[in-house]
Each structure stands twice: as C-alpha cells, then as structure tokens.
Design a protein around this nucleic acid. Structure first.
Length: 260
DNA sequence: CTCGACTCCTGTTAGC
DNA sequence: TGCTAACAGGAGTCGA
C-alpha cells in the first residue's frame, strides 16, 4: 500500500510533470476533493499554471506550481499515480490488480497532450490545495536519531502506534512499521518511552535499512516479514508462531520470541 | 495537549 | 453458482 516508500516512487514519476503547463483538470469525484474544495475552485486554481516541482513529505505528494499554489495528493491505501500512461508502481498490496480508468479520481491534462492521473479504487486518497505540511513530522527518510528519541520514543503509547503517528514521523505506514520492529527485535506494544538509547539507535538503523530495501525492491510489500503476515504465519527468523494483534488501530504481526 | 475509539471508502476473498 | 460478511488501513473527527 502507499506508504512513504511508494510516495517517493510516485514523486520520481511526478518529476516527468515538472516544467509542463496544465491545460485542463478532471475532478469527477467531489468527495475526493478535501477541505471543502470544489471542482470549479481547483480547476480555476491550476489551469494555465506550470508545475515547477514535485516533493514528497511522508505520505503526501506535493506539486508546486509557478504561482506558489501547492497541490497536495494523498493516495490512501489503494491510490496510484500514472503520468503519461506510465504507472511508477504496478502492484499495491490490498489494492486491485485490475486497471480501470473509472477509478481516475483526479487528472491534470497538460498542454502537450500528456496527463497525470490519480487512480484510486477505494477512494481513500484525496486532493487538496495548499495542504498544511507543517502538521507532518520529519520525513522518515531523513529523520535523525535525536529526532526519533525526542519525538517518537516518548510516552506510554505503544511503540507501533507512535511510528504510525504522522505528526511525529511522516511516512511510516503499517507494513514499514511491522517490518522495522520485526527486524529490530522490538515488541510493538512496548511503551514508546521505554526504549533505551541503544534501542533507539537500533530502531533508526533498521528503519533506514527497511526504507532503502523497500525503495530498491519496489514497495512496502517486499519485506521479509510480509509473506508471514497472515493468520497462522510463522516468524521467518525463528519459526515461532507470529502474534496477530490490533495495535494503534492496525493489524499488527510480531514475533513473541525475538521481539522484546 | 494527548490519546483511544470510531467512521469513512470499496475491491477482494473466504465461506456457506 | 451466487450471495453475504469480513477484511484491509490512511486520515479525520470527537470526546474524555
């Protein structure tokens, strides 16, 4: 599903839109527009403008336009970005393997004839104008150990829930969180503030490696834990029956043996 | 401010 | 074969 890794892949795909002018907009699904935005408003705001940058912050993809308007794209759990008929990602966990244009919720048509499409079967994504980027924490790709210690590894909230809190660290979704904690040998229900300095360092080290691995391998579904994230799954490290719990409101798989 | 519970969305799949 | 119900999770809202 689209987590920070997928958003970075989308961002690279969206680089193809930089320098191009927007001729028209398709916003057929008003529900998909967030913050009270209407199709008429978004059309007026972006038509005739040129894309000058594509940026990622956590799970938010931002297109900067030449008049400082910012277009915020969110992908929910099933959204994909398609630029000029090129999808940067073909497979998304929990999404459909079909490819139906009826799921195009937002389209920018460029003056040169190409287009940028946000295709989201389950409509959990959305489009906003001038999104509040400051509400997001430091992006997981660049967060430093000290920032993790100060903003993530604090309080009595379960560690897993903390990692999913986008205001503290942006871009970690359910699969990245489970894989990171599994590799780091940390129990997802541990109080976030209970980690020692060494455990914080270990957490950051594994997070960075997980992000790099997932980026290299093409998405957040490519983890070593992933095949075992099913009912009755066994830990790929030691064969122990995995625990399946709901933590932070999300299905969480972890190993009772080596995650402490 | 913090935090857990709840709600939204719909394609897919398990099970009868 | 056809149907129903459960399931998936990112993000916003609400109340304690």
């Amino acid at each position: 599903m689209p987590e920070g890794v997928e958003i970075e892949i989308y961002r690279r795909g969206a680089e193809a839109a930089v320098g191009r002018s927007i001729a028209s907009v398709e916003a057929p699904d008003e529900w998909f527009l967030k913050g009270g935005l209407t199709p008429a408003e978004v059309t007026a705001a972006v038509t005739g403008r040129t894309v000058v940058a594509a940026r990622a912050r956590g799970k938010l993809l931002v297109l900067d336009l030449d008049d400082d308007t910012r277009v915020g794209l969110r992908f929910g759990m099933t959204g994909r970005l398609i630029v000029d008929d090129n999808a940067s990602i073909d497979y998304l966990e929990y999404s459909s393997t079909r490819n139906d244009p009826a799921w195009d919720r937002f389209v920018l048509n460029f003056e040169d004839g190409g287009d940028l499409r946000l295709r989201d079967p389950r409509r959990l994504g959305g489009v906003s104008l001038d999104p509040d980027e400051d509400a997001l924490g430091v992006d997981a790709f660049v967060i430093k150990p000290k920032q993790v210690r100060d903003r993530v590894a604090v309080g009595e909230v379960p560690l897993k829930a903390r990692l999913l809190d986008q205001s503290r660290i942006a871009g970690v979704g359910n699969l990245i969180a489970d894989e990171t904690l599994w590799r780091a040998g940390l129990d997802p229900v541990r109080a976030a503030g209970s980690l020692t300095d060494d455990e914080v360092k270990k957490l950051v080290r594994h997070l960075r490696k997980v992000l790099a691995d997932f980026l290299r391998d093409g998405g957040s579904h490519t983890g070593r834990l992933q095949p075992a994230r099913v009912r009755g799954g066994l830990c790929p490290k030691d064969g122990t029956a995995l625990l399946r719990r709901e933590i932070g409101g999300r299905t969480t798989y972890s190993c009772a043996h080596h995650q402490r």
